[in-house]
Amino acid sequence: MMLRILSSEFLKIRKKLIWLLVAAGPIGVVALQAVNYGVRYDYLVAGKETAKLWSGLIGNVSMLALPALMVGLALVASMTAGIEHQMNAWKLTLALPVRKRQVFAGKFLLTALLLLISCTLLVPLTVALGLALGFDGPIPYGDLLTNAYYPYLAAMPFIALQAWLSVTMANQTLPLTIGIVGMIVSMFAGGRFPDWVPYKWPQLVNASHEPLYSVTAGVALGLVVFVAGMAEFVRKDVK
């Protein structure tokens, strides 16, 4: 049943701007770094060893990718839910023989999968930029992948929160405000907040220097938020 719901969800976003956003996020991030490296080529590249060049590039891309992910997840969640809000199609879907919690899970999964696509795109785009800048091998795929997916997993509480807010509220002002404020908070979360603050997790910074702690905490809290959102959605009458 979940597969059927997802296939229906993907059909519904056909020809939607959402796809543009999914692609534009990572492309924008890498394009900005392309400009950065273009302007400051001598400072950033000249005379450095290959490993340093790649790790420098990955770090720079991540620095921009994080706020893009934090605001992107609010936008994507709002757009996927908006498809139903726009023409008040919730009553259409929920009067069908489907479980309400599966409908909610479908929206969350759609949002999460679209963001996963965005994060995945970062990898080939970063590699392309590195090669274009003349970095030679070996390409550190391990680092590339962890930098693409760890922040994504650590941001899971926010994906779940935005999916919840956007699905249950017809007016998207509040969800989007919370999402944008969240992005700003997360940008400054690094050194200032204690480790337990979720806004710090996507940066993968913690006292034990173990990124996987941030990832684990993110996935765990994400699950909790998802279940809480689903419970509220199931309980509420459909507008």
Partner: peptide
């Protein structure tokens, strides 16, 4: 309720 950007067939297909 309908999805305006989809055709009639696509709307029915979603359901």
């Amino acid at each position: 309720s309908y999805y305006g950007h989809l055709t009639a067939t696509e709307n029915l297909e979603a359901v």
